[in-house]
Computed example of a mutant assay.
Amino acid sequence: MTKGEQALNEREIELQEQMQEVLKKGPRSGQEIQFMTDLAFIDVFRLERLPKGFKMPPIEQYNGKADPVDHLETFKSLMYLQGASDTIMCKAFPSTLKGSARQWFSHLKPLSLSKFIDLGRAFLTNFMSSRIHKTTAANLLAIRQQAREIIREFLTRFNKEALEVRDLDLMVKFQALSSGIRDRKLKESLIMEEPVDMCDLYSRCEKHINLAEVLTVEQERELRIERKGQDRKEPPVSKNKPKENREQREGKRRRDDRAWVSRSDVKPELAYTPLTHRRAYILNEVKDRLTIHWPTKMVKPASEHNKNKYCKFHQDHGHDTEECR
């Protein structure tokens, strides 16, 4: 036997002897083993047992990286639902921690916690840097409807932000939504007849949304029908003649619509003071106050009228009120 083999055998015999000594001594008693999970609590908490039938509610363990307020509020809600006492909440909370959060709790000063509010305050103080910034009432008042954002998308975004504001006053929410709306027609409606409360404001917005969606569908359907009719009527384009683009065709259509205005309504154009409101708005305001001589119907056949345009003065399709001459 070589010297190396002899030394290996001696080491093996030595390890076997050590194992036999450990087995002879037996395991330590529960009093000799120190657990770090409950040293921070006072003796009364450590000695109290869990009530019969108590089950720890399922909750995601906190590792120190997420929002501590969200974790603490979730834990309290679940424990209150089970009617857990302050002592049980203290004993159960360490089981919802892991990683760096678990290490933080194990290093708390022994016998330093006598109630759950002290534990919650220490927890929030230590992990405050991980807290997610919450939306405030000032942030909500700064929200505005964007240029190409429809009112439904704006309401969805506004409600999502409003849910992030804690203890939001309904009057502040009402003012924020009212000032944030930029849709012209809805804004005019809210100014002419102010909503009574938040429920009325939401109801008005919902009616406007439904009306806008219905009109959009109708306009798209009429536009498809009009395009099909134009495709059938348009003669084949000559190879030598350049094809007209869409803007040129729309310009001709507008001139044709104006050409069908009744001759009795045609008057020489004069220089007037520029209007401060749209013609449709002015007509709507004065129609019941003044005696207006309404014009006769336009002579252009109704089948050739542009259904996408309506004149409130002639009360007929063919051109817009703003284009009326």
Rank of each mutant, 00 (worst) to 15 (best):
K3D: 03
K3V: 02
K3F: 01
G4K: 05
Q6S: 05
Q6P: 00
Q6V: 03
A7Y: 04
N9V: 01
N9Q: 12
L15I: 04
L15V: 03
E17S: 06
Q18D: 11
M19S: 03
Q20G: 05
E21I: 12
L23R: 15
K24P: 00
G26I: 01
G30C: 05
Q31D: 15
E32Q: 14
I33V: 15
M36N: 01
L39A: 09
L39W: 05
I42C: 10
R46G: 06
R49N: 08
K52N: 10
M56S: 14
Y62W: 09
N63R: 05
A66K: 08
A66Q: 13
P68N: 05
H71S: 03
L72C: 06
T74L: 05
F75R: 04
L81M: 09
S85N: 03
T87A: 08
T87M: 10
T87N: 03
M89T: 01
M89L: 06
C90N: 06
F93T: 06
K98V: 06
A101N: 02
R102E: 04
Q103N: 07
W104A: 03
F105H: 07
F105P: 00
F105V: 00
L108I: 01
K109T: 10
L111N: 13
K115L: 08
I117Q: 07
I117V: 11
I117G: 02
D118W: 14
D118C: 05
F127V: 07
S130Y: 09
I132L: 12
K134H: 13
T135Q: 04
T135F: 05
A138T: 13
N139A: 07
A142D: 14
Q145M: 14
Q146N: 12
A147N: 12
R148G: 15
E149N: 09
I150P: 00
T156V: 13
F158S: 05
F158D: 08
E164G: 00
V172C: 07
Q175K: 11
S178P: 00
S178M: 10
K185E: 11
E188M: 13
E188V: 11
S189L: 12
L190T: 09
E193Y: 06
E194Q: 11
V196C: 07
V196M: 08
C199H: 09
S203A: 15
K207Q: 10
V214A: 14
L215K: 02
L215E: 06
E218D: 09
E218I: 13
Q219K: 15
Q219W: 08
E220F: 02
E220Q: 11
R221G: 01
R227A: 13
G229T: 04
K233Y: 04
K239H: 09
K243V: 13
E244I: 05
N245L: 03
E247N: 09
Q248E: 15
K252H: 10
K252V: 01
D257R: 15
W260F: 15
V261C: 12
D265G: 07
D265Q: 14
V266T: 06
V266N: 04
L270F: 14
L270E: 15
P274M: 01
T276P: 01
I282Q: 12
L283S: 03
K287A: 07
D288R: 02
R289P: 00
I292C: 03
W294S: 10
S303G: 03
H305Q: 08
Y310M: 04
Y310T: 04
C311A: 01
K312P: 00
H314E: 01
G318W: 06
H319Y: 11
C324H: 03
C324V: 02
R325P: 05
